[in-house]
Design a binder for these strands. Sequence first.
DNA 1: ATTTGTCGCTAACGTATGTTAGTTTGTTAT
DNA 2: ATAACAAACTAACATACGTTAGCGACAAAT
Lengths: 198, 198
Amino acid sequence: MARIKTDNNVSRKEVIVAKAAVLFREKGFKAASMRDLAESVGVEAASLYNHIKSKTELLHELCFGVANRFMQKMEEVEQEKIPAGEKVEKLLRFHINEMVHHYEEVYVSDREWKHLSDPYLSNFQNQRRIYRKRFAAIIETGIRAKEIEPIDAPTAVLIFLHAISGIESWHRSKQKISAEELENNMITILVDGLYPRK
Amino acid sequence: MARIKTDNNVSRKEVIVAKAAVLFREKGFKAASMRDLAESVGVEAASLYNHIKSKTELLHELCFGVANRFMQKMEEVEQEKIPAGEKVEKLLRFHINEMVHHYEEVYVSDREWKHLSDPYLSNFQNQRRIYRKRFAAIIETGIRAKEIEPIDAPTAVLIFLHAISGIESWHRSKQKISAEELENNMITILVDGLYPRK
DNA sequence: ATTTGTCGCTAACGTATGTTAGTTTGTTAT
DNA sequence: ATAACAAACTAACATACGTTAGCGACAAAT
């Protein structure tokens, strides 16, 4: 009998959720089976249910974990007293860092949320919509202050968020540039298009 | 008995592939069942197999259909005798148009190719890698000609391609701006970051 | 040492899935 | 009208999946 080993105040459930993130990322939620997950945890499939309620619970855990972190950062940034452009940059850097350092969870939350079931599904969709609205609002504030070029803010937000989720491919790439290089490259490319030409 | 109705030289197989694109987009490849597809086509599940070999064949058809169109455009653009910046812009506009007008197929090809099986899988991955290399090469030519800012070309390519795939959300959005507006907004935001500041 | 509760195991259930076999219906060509 | 073919149907198969029930093994507390 092989117990799930848990170092340092990390519950067995958390171990399972972490392994699930890896698996859901590489196979997709539907294609990843509980038996796959069990094997990667080192245990029989049925044993998982001593720690979790269902497969979907794992997805909840992942999606809302990520969503909450982003929402919290949004609140933090909104309250700072700095120009809108800097707020945008701060948010972008946060996104990039999350993608680099919590790759699996962020990726899963981004691509697999469709498979949430309905009290949670609409909740999640709402959160995303709200997040984007608030992001766009920051950009629009910058535009009114003539600090940012007059572009369509919602489109800009879409571009930013999806551009960053492209780090997925960087993550798998062989000839990696460093994480800081990546971050600065992205900021250059994304943000420099924002400011008016002189 | 309800036959699949086919107007205008369009084979029944093509009807099925088209419906599959819609279904795969909204549920994901794994979650979409052949019985779902059959219902949406208006026929029993088993009947589909008079026209197709397998579920995965539908995915091949979609993925390689899209990939081939992009490869062809790449060849076309490479051979034009225009500045690198304009080549980039042409490719981006093509991407945006494909995403707007062949939404379902492009989206599926982008997100569901993981579920291809192995002779096709590696083939598809190769095509993508090659496509990106050639795209990056164009940008690098522009950089050497001091026509484009010295940025990391592979990163720029990742950003561009993923940014455009974000149109997905625009497609579903209610308060749509027009397709041309969208295209021009995107080009402004993405391309303007490329040229050196004066 | 005994109790108690946590955790993992085996076995199995019910359901959904992709696909095949064999048959019947409808259409097209002679 | 009839033969020939295409395309739909019904029935069923094997497999894979999420999950439950019940039991045994280990660890912690008394």
